[in-house]
Nucleic acid binder design. Sequence first.
DNA 1: GTTCTAGAAC
DNA 2: GTTCTAGAAC
Length: 779
Amino acid sequence: MFTFSPFRLLSEEQEEVKGKRKTLVVILMGPPGSGKTTFCNDVMSSARRCWVRICQDTIANGKAGAKSQCLKSAADALKDGKSVFIDRCNLERDQRADFLRLGGAQADVHAVVLDLPARLCISRSVNRTGHEGNLQGGKAAAVVNRMLQKKELPQLSEGFSRITFCQNENDVKNAVKIYSALDLSDTLPSGVFGQRSKDAKVQLGIMKFLKKVEIPENETSGKCNVIDDNTCQDSIPRQETCGKDLCSMELEMENKDKKGSDSLEKSSVGDLSSNDVHTLAFPSISTADFQFDHEKASDIIVESVADFLRKVDNVRLVLVDLSHKSNILSLVRAKAAERNIDSKKFFTFVGDITQLYTKRGLRCNVIANAANWRLKPGGGGVNAAIFKAAGKSLEIATKERIETLSPGNSVAVPLPSTSPLYKFEGVTHVIHVLGPNMNPQRPNYLKNNYVKGCMVLRDAYSSLFEHFASISKSCLQREGSGDSRYNLSDPQSNLMEGTTSEQFPQSDQKIKREDPYDFERNKRSKGILTESSSKDKYNMQHGDHGFAESGINSDAPKSDDESRKTAVATKRTWGSWAQALYENAMHPEKHKNAVMEISNEYVVLNDRYPKAKKHILVLSRLHGLDCLADVQKEHLPLMKQLHAVGVQWAERFLSEDASLVFRLGYHSVPSMRQLHLHVISQDFDSTHLKNKKHWNSFNTAFFRDSTDAIEEIDKYGAAKINDEKLLTMELRCHRCRSAHPNIPKLKSHVANCKFSFPSHLLHNGRLVSASSKTVSEKP
DNA sequence: GTTCTAGAAC
DNA sequence: GTTCTAGAAC
């Protein structure tokens, strides 16, 4: 790879142009997260000439502005003799053409291409908060990938006098050094610097996207189902730096082939070149510490794999073990060959399952873990290695999803984007699997009962593969809709309802600090509570109680200003459009068409704009009880009654359609007057669910589960009210918690997501389903 | 060009 | 709560 040499600054070529005092227009190019702003700041902090950074995200008094404003500012700066950085993505030729016209007699135009791995950019974008471009969360992956697909590399013919490509952090550092060192009389040599290959007309990432870097089909076939140290070690360059694009390795491999050295085993090239395919890497379950018979286990693996591959297309399964002497790998390899299992769809692989990509070039977006029943780290072997490699965040994400696992089962856990396994290995999910145990020293010992043992092992693989298929399916759908393949399920989840501060203390508080609630923003003067409201009473009574403070709940300590606002606030007023439910409650006889059930205390009616297949309201008829914040201990019997009626209706719906799952609860701050309990099916399959507010009002802590509200009122005399700011949170699937850039994409994901509900919803009767009996026992 | 969001009006 | 719509995002 090209390395920069600052000493070229003093070349003869430069001497010639010294004294012309040309200013510079440096057009940065790179997707969000590639480090454009950092590059500018790094240069400017130690620059020897005067630079101005033009950023479209902040050009309009700190806010995003138009391209024309950028052009004007740049022209002005150049007139003043300053050099400018154009800090915007500029990935397409058209986008940067206008900026190129800034060049001329007085100014040279350079390009600095921050061509870093897409995953790194996505990971940075996802992680950052408060960025000028406001590109965070699940949106980032989609945007980065879409931008990269359209990327057109700069060419000198566009009018650049110099183009510098940076493909890793070191390249960036060198480029910063060069531009920092430039004083007003220096110029840099013209030409293209740092490009990977002189012949590369199209950048490799694009080539990979266009599937141009492929090994001919006939070279990929073969019976050999193994890639191990013998075939692979020398042929695949070991990567010292993480996140290197696979295509570069492929090219290097290809080049080696051309040179006639280090020729590759055909099978390994074939398998590795299809790294785009969704791949599950899994260890042999139960054959190590659980001492399951290898012959029987290998039979089951091969049968399970064959069954699965018959049903599911476009995926790859890889059985991994650490040593090429592995007995189970040999057995499976032989049996897979006997059964003529396609070696492109299933093969064995020797390597560390936690470093398949960085060390071996094999990208596996999902890996399986041979877990223990407590789903705890440690214990040695694969389990210890995976938990160690994934970091604490896997432990947390796992515990949040499920407490324990029984033999024959598995659980898929989306990896938080902060996990090194996610960042460097590209692993988006870990599926924990528990197999049968034949070791008397371990729990659930089966005493050599291989009838049961084989059954359990089959179940384990079948469960594992089903989870993998489900992940793959939802991912492919997103890819089909133009979304990112790396954003299989952005697992960064920090603000789900029920998420406690113990679980995500830092992330929650960080969000609170960095994005204080803009009280003035909501000009429509929403519900403001009186100083003696239930909400404040709750806070006064339970400020230091064991309840989780989510960090964005409204009962966080108030600033003086906020306290003043609360103190002077008056009882909420309701707009005319917010009176409809009140009318229904007071005069149900006038609304016979809408009303499904009437009693003295309540009215049941269909939500006029249902946000799911089934969505009804159980409306209190008590005058003066407008919302959850008004509820006090004296209303406890009423609350229980509303809940019981809601459950009855849910059960009625379940008798018609047992596939539904219901949740019952209140909006923290309702839009309509008159206390009403939502009974809503969890499919959210409705054309009326149209925006972020709709989604988040049912799928963040803004939605207060009826059972929790009742419990809190019983214990503390008031239910907790959570902040309306939750309604603006990023969109996350209520099942697998993946983030989605917009409502249509979220809805198409939700329509197919088969993940089990997060564990906190499975408790305290929060969900009512055909199989749950718990809820009817509740209040 | 189309899709999507978010603010204002009701 | 919804509808409408400008303009941002794609």
